[in-house]
Structure formats: structure tokens, C-alpha cells
Amino acid sequence: MATADTEPGSSQRFEKGTRETLVTVARHAVLLTWSFLVLFPLYWLASMSLKPSGQANSLPPDWIFLPTVYNYLQLVQSSDFVTAFANSLLMVGASVVLVLLIGVPAAYVLSRYDIPKERDVLVWILSSRMLPPIAVVLPFFIIFQEFNLFDSKIGMVLMYVSINLSLVVWVMKAFFDGIPETLEEAARVDGATRFQGFLKIILPAAKPGIFSVAIISFIFAWIELLFGLVLTSFNAVPVTLFVYSFIGSRSIEWSMLAAASTAMIIPVAIFLIAVNKYLAAGLSFGVVIKE
């Protein structure tokens, strides 16, 4: 009887364990498939950059080939590429710092203070992202010409700030709304000023949001092409415009295009890796959400 009583339980445990194993295998299979689909274009781009110009766009593709760094050497030896790359690093980095300095306090004010017609103000801020870039590039061109900002690094920094400011304000306002005001009230009871509470209490709690919008702002500014094409000519040319130069009217330099595109990805990857450490540290503390 004891054996008969235990056999059904053992069978059920075995079936449950089998189902859990199958679910785990299926989950990993889906994740591996999705990872392959996401990473394959990056592999394809990197492999093209390591092929000679004659092999880069061959059909059928050469899966086995002797890699070469000739394309990258050509990029490094090109003063135009080095200058454009440095321009983008300087302009995009400065724009990220500036947009955070403006957008984060603005979002805090909108979250904590009673602003007349706050909803209208938020919609007005968001409206800067509603129009397609092609619709606003000509007015910006006229303004830049009027104020001597055309083909200047300062002008491009201001342009990058203008296209990312609404994103920073909206995302950070949502983060500040989720942080209870009781934390600041407790700090003020201990003698802290409003600014000290914002600096020492709110900003550390909102660190995940700050680094998130910093990442997005960096990527949006780094890959921007249209404004650089219209608003620069020589002194402030971004790296995206240099990459675009490999696309000619009669032919495309596929190997050089792939090498330049791969080089463009490197700063984004480094920035993501560097920021991810602080992002994970911020998330590990957690944020108390309002109920």
C-alpha cells in the first residue's frame, strides 16, 4: 500500500519536473534565437569591414575569408575622419551634459511645484519632438545664419540639446513623480535646504533615470545626420556626415562604409558599458514608489 501511495506522487513530481525542464529549454531557445537575430547584423557589419573592397558585397557572401585591417588603417590615416570623429565626441558629449543640466532641474520643478497650466507646458515641451526634422531644419538654418552659428560646434551643441530636451524633461518628471516627497520633508526636518534635499536625496534616488536619459540622448545625438548635413560644411562636420560620404551617386564603398559604421558603434558601446555599472548600482538601491 505504501508503494502504491507513493507511486502517483512520484509520477506527478516527475511530470512537473519534466514540464519545468521543457519550459526552461524553450525559454532559452527563444532567447538564443532572439539574440542571434539582434546580433547578426552587427556581425555582418563587422565582417564586411574586415573584407577587401572586392569581397565586401560579393554574392553569395564569403563566409570564410582572410580578415584585413586595411579599411581601418585607411580611416585612421584620414585626417577628415579623425576630425569628424573628434567633433562628434566633443559636440555630443557637451550636449548630453548641457541637456541634463537644463532638463533634470526643469523636470523636478514641474514635478514638485504647482505650475499654472502644467499640462499645457508639458505638451508645449513635447511639441518640439512632434514635427519631423525636415520641417524644422530650414528655420534653424536661417536662425543659425543670422546669429553666426552656421558650421560652428556651439551651434550643433545647441541643436542636439533642442532635439533631446523634451525627452529628458518628460522621462525625468515621471521618475521624480515616483519619488515620495516625504524623503525631502525628512531632510528639511534635519536642517537641509530645498536645494540640498534635491542634491543629496532626490538625485541619488533618480540616478537610474538620469543615466537612462543620458544614454538615449547620447545615441540620438550621435546618429543624427540631417542637421549635420544642412547646418555644417567644414568646421563642425559630425562623423555621421563622413560616413555618408562613402555613398556615392554611382557606387558605394561597402568595405569603408562598414568600417566607418563599426568605428561609430565603438563609442556608444563604451558609453553603455561605463554607464551600465552606475545604472545597475542605482537600481540595486531601489526607489520607493508613491502609492
Rank of each mutant, 00 (worst) to 15 (best):
E7R: 10
F271N: 02
I270T: 09
G17V: 03
F150Y: 05
R250Q: 14
M159P: 13
L131S: 04
L37D: 07
I102M: 15
V25R: 10
V136W: 12
S212A: 05
S212F: 04
V23A: 08
D151F: 05
T182V: 10
G197M: 14
S249W: 06
G248T: 09
A86H: 12
T21Y: 11
G197I: 11
I289M: 14
S212T: 12
A206H: 05
A56S: 09
V123Y: 09
F246I: 03
S79L: 07
A4T: 10
L225F: 02
L50V: 04
A46W: 03
W170V: 02
I163P: 00
P180E: 04
I202G: 07
L199F: 15
F176I: 01
Y70C: 06
W124V: 12
R119C: 00
D120F: 00
W254H: 10
S78Q: 05
L66S: 14
V275C: 09
P61F: 02
K51Y: 01
R188H: 15
W254D: 01
S251V: 13
W222F: 09
L66T: 13
S35Y: 14
G248V: 14
F140A: 08
F175T: 01
V268S: 04
I252Y: 15
A135C: 02
V237E: 14
Y244H: 11
I265S: 15
R188N: 14
A205C: 02
S53H: 08
T24H: 12
I265R: 00
T83S: 13
L22A: 03
F65L: 02
Y70T: 13
L283A: 07
T21K: 12
P267V: 06
E185F: 15
T3A: 09
A281Q: 14
I215R: 02
Y278R: 15
D62T: 00
E7K: 14
F198G: 01
V38Q: 13
E7G: 04
I215D: 10
Q196S: 03
R112Y: 01
I125P: 04
A192I: 11
P61V: 04
L126R: 06
T3P: 13
A106T: 06
V275S: 07
T18E: 08
G248P: 04
G155R: 07
R250W: 15
L110F: 06
S58V: 11
I179S: 03
F14M: 12
A269I: 10
L257E: 07
T21F: 15
I252N: 13
I289L: 11
K117Y: 14
G282W: 10
L75S: 06
S95V: 02
K153Y: 00
E185N: 10
F242W: 05
Y108H: 12
F175P: 05
L241I: 12
F285D: 08
H28V: 09
T240G: 06
L110T: 03
L279C: 09
V157A: 05
I247S: 03
K290M: 06
M130L: 14
A186H: 11
R19M: 04
F198I: 02
L257A: 14
F285N: 07
P52D: 09
D5L: 15
L225A: 05
T33A: 15
L183M: 10
